[in-house]
Structures are given as structure tokens and as C-alpha cells.
Design a protein around this nucleic acid. Structure first.
Length: 558
RNA sequence: GCGCCGGUAGCUCAGUCCGGAUAGAGCGGGGGACUUCUAAUCCUCAGGCCGCAGGUUCGAAUCCUGCCCGGCGCGCCA
């Protein structure tokens, strides 16, 4: 990457100039930045400003000395000292043309880092199977999925996991609700409990089970309830998977709390905490001493009625995860769970794991609106908008892109009316259109009988128009963007990069005719188009958004 | 009351981690560009006490302190 080359170059200049400047001790790693103003060059460093305060010299003097000590370098056209002591570098276009050759060679892997053995698990969605996914799950699903794709691009070996609590009070209420419907459909009218679930899907489940498993009605209450609850949960999990598949979200594994319990892992985990003195009994319950790990309160592992809490199961689940050999664990949680961070990391530490290996990515809430009006949502009352309906209305691509447009810790608005519009309000179509346009150009060239020559034989040096150069620069930045977005767990940076790349392509399209009588220019520009399309597809791929080969105009889409 | 997250153009948001030069983008508003590879596009103009007040620094949207406003959370709920 050019930035790395420049950083090393600046460092050698700095090191060479250090003795005469009287700089001793550790030298800072020069920061390479892209100046906002073109007059300030292609790249710049402020390293002279950084070190000048350490010695009695003006930062400009320091900058001059560093520049004088810089070794010769290819691609560097001009170096100057500017302002208070910035060192600005102007490059020849050759480095940009090299980027094009690199993209041609690397294709779909351009911008990604080499695969490493570092294994990371991303656990997300993890909604309990008490009902279909609704829009409230959308951001978590998309963020977790995009994060997994992004970390994969950054070289991690990634596994995506869905954990669900199929034991506990909520599941009991869900099971009792379906059971009531089940009995009613078999001629034993039964009211759904007051605190139960009331969506239409409950009745659907009850009816299906009544048809398929009428024999359960003869079982004792406990056994029948367990059978109904288990079968209903399995069906709901099936729905959830189907919905997520439509949303382009897939998992490598599903883990059930009840399974952990059956294997005795939960009891074991709690015993382990007791043995190490990190758990104690009080008020008839078993508590984790999370205050010893920075939490503001101790937390209950086993309630006074003998049932473990979700947190108790979480401890067993932590052991389960680490036992599977992950180097790093990421939990994707909504803002309402930020208070749980300290206890989970505390538990990791108490159980003998490296707490730094447990990372929680929090996202803020989404307000769903329809034409400016808030969409009412209550899961128990069954008045939520399901994720399936959202996908029906706006499409998976538009929903995903919109949800990935903003920083994780920003609350965001999602107006279903706006996002469904194929309008300029909708950046996803802007970016996708860029890709479709490129495909269209390549088709046009093919139909015109233009045969793309091997890139090694094409004179790329004729790509010197400002629109071409700006496009090349955007392509050159992509590896750094992906690396940074991954490091910051910030897929929205990828979304913004895709918009920027699309914008630069659209400008290039407007200003530069690709397929023309000038065959040398046609060849060079076709390679630029190919590279742009390939990189755009890579970026969209990280977002889990499709890169269409064509997009037909829609009526009234101006 | 305590904790976490936001507060940047009329609106929605980048930029804050790791301080740099004249703070960016989209939408909306004004004005332009289609006999040309898709006008779902492009160009141009207007629009900013970067919540407020201090502090650190050669330099602060960015770091520190306090405050204001909004969201979320705060012992055996999930």
C-alpha cells in the first residue's frame, strides 16, 4: 500500500535527520494523511510538528531537515514544506496505475487482508424462539452479519453463531400460550394466559400442532406442555432461519441454553465460580461477585426458586465458547444490554479467561416510522411489524444498506416509506446503479466487438483526466478503508466508501467516454471500469448487498 | 442519583479512537446539462458560535473538567 511505503520513507528521513537535530530517544511513527486541499499534495505528514516540540527548533526547520534527509523514491514528483511544518508529497500518476494492475490481479480479494488462523466468533441476533423476528431485530442481524463479513475480509477466520434461551420464564409463557390454542383447536376451549403471547402466529402454531399431533392431548399436563413448547419453538426457529436467509444472513451454528443445561454445563460453571470464591450464597440465591470485576452490583446466578438466571447460563456458554478454541469472542448487543457488559467480562475473567478476548459491540436503537409516523410495536400484543414484512416492503438490499449507513452508537430513524422509495433519498440504488452502469459499459464494448487486451499490454499512463485520477484514488484507498472499518467494528465506513466510489465513477462516466474509436483509450478505460466494478462489488459484498448487472429504469423515478 | 450512547448545514449523517492546513456528503432549496456506453446520472450556487462554558496545546469538532438537552440501562425480567 502506498501509505505504508510513504510511512517508511518518512521514517527513514526522520531517522537520518535525527542526529543533527539533536533528537534522541524513540521517534514517533510518522502519520501519513491525505490533505483536504489538492494544493497540499497527494499525501502529507505532520511528523515534523510532532517532534519539534521536543527540541528547541521551529517545526519548519525540522521539516526542512527531514526533507533534506529523505532518500530518493520512485513515484515522488515533488516534496515541499508548507504551513507550520507539514511535509507535502506530490506523486507521479504511476502509483495509481499500479493500483489498477493490482486490482486486475487480485480481483475479489483486492482490499482484503491475507487469511490468518486467528479465529473469531460473532454471536448475534440470538432472539428467543417465542415468535417471528420483527423489525426490532433488524439492526442487530445486519450489523452482526456485516461485521462477520468485514472481519473475514480483514483476515480473521470467522464463525457466526446464534444462541437462544429455550428455557426460562418467557419460553414457559410462550409454551402455555400455544398449548391453550392447541387445546382449543381440539375442542377444549382454553384461554391464553394473561401474561402470555397473543399474536396470530400463536393460533397458527396451535392449529398446526392440533392437526399433526392430536395425540398429545391425552398426555398429562406437564408432558403435553413440554411437547407443545418444544415443537412450537422448533417451528419458530425454522421461521427465524427462513427470514434471516431472505435477509442474506446465515449462521454457522446454533446453540441452545437447554442443551447446555442438559449437558450439566450450567451447574458446572456455577460450581467452578463457587470453588474459586467468585460466587456465594445469600438471601437463598447464588450470586456472582461481579463487583470484584468492576461491576456496580453483584449478580444472581441461581434464583431462590432454584432456577438459574440467563446470566448463569451465560457463564456456562462462555466456557463452551472458549473450549471451542476461539481467540476472540464478539457479542453484538442492543443498547439495552450495555449494563450487562461488566458482568460478562467479569465472568470471563473469573473463569480464567482473558477478559480482553471478550468484546461487546453495542448498537443503539432504530426508530421505525412510516411516513413520519412511529410504527407501534408490542411483541406480546402481536402488533409488531415483522422482519418479513419489512423485507417484502423495502427489499433486503435497501433495508440492509440503510441499516449499515450509520455508526453503531447512533440512534437512527428508519422510515419504511422512504427506504422503499426508489428515489435519490435512497443511496443503495445510487451505489448499485454505479455497478449496473459499469456492467452496461462492458456489455456495450463486447457488442461493439471490442476485445479486452491483457492489462500488461495496455498503456494505463494515458489515464490522466481528473475524473480518472480521482476514481483511481478511491480504488487505492479501499484496502485501508476495509482494514480500518474492521478494526473499529464499523461497517458503516464501508457503506460510505461504496458511496464515494460510486460517486467518483458516476462523474467519470459523465466526463469520460469509454467505448470510442480511440482504441488505446478504450482499453485503458475499460480496465478502469472493470476494476471499479470489481471493487464496488467487493464493498457491497461486505455489506451483504447485491451488485446487480443491470437495473431497469422505474417509472417516475426522477 | 449513578452508568453508557448521542448532540456537527433547514433535515439525515460522516469526520472524534490516534489533535493539524480553508469542517465534508446526501437530501431539501436556487440555477444549469440528455441526437452520446442507462438523466436511478452529472455540474453549479446558497447554507455552519461543530450543544454551552472553561482548560491543555504552536494548533481542538477531536483530548481534560463542569454543565445543558435527548435515548438507553440501573440487585433473583428477558
Amino acid at each position: 500500500m502506498i501509505e505504508d511505503d510513504l510511512r517508511g520513507w518518512f521514517r527513514s528521513g526522520l531517522e537520518a535527520a535525527a542526529p543533527e537535530l539533536g533528537l534522541d530517544g524513540e521517534l514517533p511513527e510518522p502519520e501519513v494523511m491525505e490533505p483536504r486541499q489538492k494544493e497540499h499534495g497527494d499525501f502529507a505528514t505532520n511528523v515534523a510538528l510532532e517532534v519539534a516540540s521536543r527540541i528547541a527548533a521551529s517545526s519548519r526547520t525540522v521539516a526542512e531537515a527531514i526533507v533534506a534527509a529523505l532518500p530518493p523514491a520512485a513515484f515522488v514528483r515533488k516534496v515541499e514544506v508548507a504551513g507550520p511544518g507539514f511535509i507535502n508529497v506530490f506523486l507521479t500518476e504511476g502509483w495509481l496505475h499500479d493500483v489498477l494492475r493490482r486490482i486486475a490481479a487480485e480481483g475479489a480479494s483486492y482490499g482484503t487482508a491475507p487469511r490468518t488462523e486467528q479465529r473469531v466468533q460473532v454471536e448475534f441476533v440470538s432472539a428467543n424462539p417465542t415468535g417471528p423476528l420483527h423489525v426490532g431485530h433488524a439492526r442487530n442481524a445486519v450489523l452482526g452479519d456485516a461485521l462477520a463479513r468485514l472481519l473475514d475480509a480483514a483476515g480473521w477466520t470467522v464463525e457466526r453463531e446464534y444462541y437462544y434461551n429455550d428455557a426460562g420464564g418467557q419460553m414457559d409463557r410462550f409454551g402455555a400460550s400455544v398449548d391453550a390454542s392447541y387445546l382449543s383447536h381440539l375442542g377444549r376451549p382454553t384461554d391464553i394466559p394473561e401474561d402470555g403471547y397473543h399474536g396470530a402466529y400463536i393460533d397458527e402454531l396451535g392449529r398446526e400442532l392440533a392437526v399433526e399431533e392430536p395425540g398429545w392431548a391425552a398426555l398429562p399436563d406437564e408432558e403435553r406442555l413440554a411437547a407443545v413448547r418444544g415443537a412450537a419453538a422448533a417451528r419458530v426457529l425454522g421461521w427465524i432461519d427462513a427470514t434471516l436467509a431472505r435477509f442474506n444472513v446465515r449462521f454457522d451454528s446454533h446453540v441452545s441454553e437447554a442443551a447446555l443445561d442438559r449437558k450439566g454445563e450450567i451447574a458446572q460453571a456455577i460450581d467452578q465460580l463457587r470453588a474459586s470464591g467468585n460466587a456465594y450464597e445469600a438471601e437463598g440465591a447464588v450470586w456472582f461477585r461481579s463487583t470484584a470485576f468492576g461491576d456496580d452490583k453483584d449478580r444472581v446466578l441461581v434464583r431462590s426458586d432454584g432456577r438459574h438466571t440467563y446470566f448463569g447460563a451465560d457463564c456456562a456458554y462462555l466456557i463452551d465458547k472458549f473450549d471451542r478454541g476461539f481467540d476472540h469472542l464478539i457479542y453484538v448487543w442492543g443498547a439495552d444490554h450495555h449494563g450487562d457488559i461488566a458482568r460478562v467480562r467479569g465472568a470471563a475473567q473469573a473463569l480464567g479467561f482473558e477478559p480482553g478476548a471478550v468484546e461487546i459491540v453495542i448498537h443503539q436503537w432504530v426508530s421505525f416510522l412510516r411516513g413520519g409516523e412511529p410504527v407501534p410495536m408490542s411483541k406480546r400484543a402481536g402488533t409488531f411489524v415483522s422482519l418479513d414484512e419489512l423485507i417484502d416492503e423495502v427489499g433486503a438490499d435497501a433495508a440492509r444498506f440503510h441499516l449499515l449507513l450509520f455508526g453503531n452508537d447512533h440512534t437512527m430513524r428508519f422510515d419504511i416509506e422512504t427506504v422503499r422509495q426508489r428515489s435519490m433519498d435512497n443511496p443503495v440504488y445510487y451505489v448499485q446503479y454505479g455497478h449496473a452502469r459499469i456492467a452496461s459499459i462492458l456489455r456495450t464494448a463486447k457488442e461493439a466487438g471490442v476485445v479486452l487486451q491483457p492489462i500488461g499490454t495496455v498503456d494505463l499512463a494515458i489515464l490522466v483526466e481528473p475524473a480518472e485520477t480521482e476514481l483511481l484514488k478511491a480504488l487505492a484507498e479501499v484496502p485501508a478503508v476495509i482494514a480500518k472499518a474492521a478494526a473499529l467494528r464499523a461497517p458503516h465506513r464501508v457503506a460510505h466508501a461504496s458511496q464515494d466510489l460510486a460517486a467518483r465513477f458516476h462523474r467519470f462516466y459523465t466526463e469520460c467516454r469509454v467505448v470510442s474509436d480511440d482504441s488505446a483509450r478504450t482499453q485503458a478505460r475499460l480496465w478502469l471500469c472493470r476494476a471499479s466494478g470489481s471493487v464496488l462489488a467487493n464493498l457491497l459484498g461486505i455489506l451483504g448487498v447485491s451488485a446487480p448487472e443491470r437495473m431497469d429504469r422505474v417509472e417516475g423515478s426522477t
